[in-house]
Amino acid sequence: MNEEPTIGIIGGSGWLGRSIALAMLDKAFVQPGALVLSNRSASNPLTSAKWSEVTVTSDNQALVERCEVVIVSVRPEQFAEVEICAENRLVISLMAGVSLEDVVQRTGSRQVIRAMANAAAEIGKSYTPWLATQQVSEEQKAFAQCLFETFGGADEVFSESHLNYLTALVGTGPAYPALLARSLFQHAVSSGLPPAIAQRASHAVVVQASQLIGNGRSVDELLQALISYRGVTAAGLDAMLASGFDKTIKAGLDSAASVASSMNPFAHSADTKEGPMTR
């Protein structure tokens, strides 16, 4: 692999594709002239004038032919409409539920990495687990790890079952904390707080938690320290656990993991009337 390969993103105008493009540019991981994005309109989704050198095309195969690394960031059900031949390229798939073998078969590349980034890439905080085919070299793996670290943290995993589970756990991005924030907000409002104050207070709880967890203490140490006061916090935690908090979380993750493991991303392709999609 070249020290500074040209990188292409199919789906470069979508939320995730655009976030990754901006992160790589902001961190100088790739120079604007070595980045190619594809979307239907061939319009540059990176509005800043300083990124005007980024190439944008509506032709996915033209992107592939210009790049050594091809990132596929489209919705899983749209992948059936992305017709490319990417032999001898490193292909990085960001599509939930699309197996390594599916990507190999549809792209012609044997050097494939399947990764699960999430919406927190927009703020550089995505946690991205990834899995590689046997043909991906150690050099390519190191390159991919550095790429993922431009928009957060990353770990290599070694089975599709683990990646499917992590799709359910971290691929959801802010969804689980957002659900907690909404429940806190609704309870605060039902208790008589003005909605504006209830919203700020519930958001603060979630933000504070994200800042304290991992800040020199494990989760168990943090919980034990808070429970040991045997006051308001302990009463709240005890009641939540007694009401089945852990069971609710387990049920949600089990359900999400089951869907992630059984997704058929090509189920709706026959109903698609439009041409090759990039979001």
Rank of each mutant, 00 (worst) to 15 (best):
V219N: 14
S126K: 03
N215Y: 10
F148C: 10
A188R: 04
P174Y: 05
L180Y: 03
K247G: 15
T248G: 15
Y176E: 12
A121Y: 02
V219G: 12
Y176S: 08
K125G: 07
L131T: 03
A198F: 03
T248Q: 13
L184C: 03
E139C: 14
S191G: 10
L147N: 07
S190Q: 12
V207N: 02
R182M: 00
F148A: 09
Q211A: 13
L184D: 01
P195T: 00
A256T: 13
A121T: 06
E160F: 08
K141N: 06
E221L: 05
A175N: 04
A132R: 04
T233I: 13
A117W: 01
R230D: 14
G216A: 13
G244D: 11
G173P: 01
V136T: 06
D220R: 10
N118S: 14
I197C: 02
D246I: 10
G252C: 11
L253V: 15
I249S: 11
A121G: 09
A256L: 12
F158G: 01
H187D: 03
W130Y: 15
L237F: 12
A120Q: 15
I123K: 06
N118I: 06
A142C: 09
A234M: 10
Q199C: 07
R217E: 15
L226N: 13
A198H: 07
S210N: 15
F245E: 04
T128G: 02
Q208Y: 11
S190T: 08
D220F: 02
A234H: 13
H162W: 10
Q186I: 01
E122K: 10
L237E: 15
A234Q: 14
G173I: 01
L147E: 08
P195M: 00
L184W: 02
A188I: 01
G171L: 02
G153D: 11
S137M: 07
V189F: 03
S183Y: 01
W130N: 06
S261H: 05
A168C: 12
L222M: 12
S159W: 02
S210G: 15
V136F: 08
T133E: 01
Q224M: 11
E160P: 05
A196R: 15
P177H: 02
L147I: 06
A234K: 11
P194G: 00
S255D: 14
S137A: 08
G214Q: 01
G252I: 06
S202R: 07
T133I: 05
W130D: 05
V136M: 07
V157Y: 03
G173E: 00
E149I: 03
G231F: 08
L184I: 03
S218G: 14
Q224E: 11
A175L: 05
G153T: 14
T248M: 14
I213P: 09
E156P: 11
H203Y: 12
Q145P: 00
S137H: 04
L253K: 12
A144W: 03
T248L: 14
I213H: 09
K125P: 03
E122S: 10
P194I: 01
